[in-house]
Amino acid sequence: MYASNFNYLRAGTLAEASALLQKNPGAKVLAGGHSLIPLMKLRLASPTVVIDIGRVPELRGISLSGGALTIGALTTHAELAASAAVQDAAQALSEAAGHVGDPAVRNRGTIGGNVAHADPASDLPAVLTALGATFHITGPGGRRSVQASDFFKGMMNTAVGEHDILTTIEVPARAAGQGSAYAKFEHPASRYAVVGVAACVIVNGGTCVAASIVLCGLTSTPARAKSGEQALVGQALTRETIAAAAGKVGTDLGSDVLGDIFASAEYRAAVAPVYVRRAVEAAASRAR
């Protein structure tokens, strides 16, 4: 399809992007365009103004300092997957980024666009929630920071307001004894997650001292598997303890599991524990 008529503006700096957003009601920010443009072509979104932030320098780059990774919103999935720093400091993020869509999607799509769009089948929201990321936002009232747990508000609805720009995402670097992983059951056509599980564990002296397990593809926002996490803490991570913890995710998911013609809610809920098990096993094997 063809998008309806719109004006295209390009911002050179963050300040300019912010100013343009506030001056143009109904405007949309354009990053990699891999979610926004399809919506516009299907005429499911018809912004009158599109503000391209693709060349804003402040939104680029990956850096590691003070025990945290700082990732510019414009960082592409391919850059994330190729970054040695990310691979070491946030294994699950590196792994998930490498499995987003296909090479074309990874070369254009950005981490900022991915989380701002907040598709329930997107990989990165679950991973960033599991890793305890903080989102830095610039808006009309200045700058603010939002924790992952408060960032994803609903299906395609986040803490990024109409006039806000997500600038950077901060991910705590891997602690001693920590390992993380992402296991994904991808849709054969779209490559989005039918079920995706991000797991992060910290193992100390053979015992799991902290665990986070977050699922995507099943619910409108990333779903934390609290009872699964609790079942791991205090345990040695063996096939048995992991399987037992995985078996608990059903209660965490509740009854709001999404379904479609490819995979029903019942089926998704049934295979979720399988992917929890795989993600936790991989995370445990990486814990060091």
């Binding site: 054969p188 056509a189 989005y192 013609i261 490819f262």
Partner: peptide, 20 residues
């Protein structure tokens, strides 16, 4: 796939799975 009303549910490459 059509639904009961005759709407094509697999109307794009995001839904219709081609071999990869």
């Amino acid at each position: 796939v059509y639904d009961a009303n005759g709407q094509l549910v697999t109307g794009s490459m995001l839904d219709y799975a081609l071999p990869r």
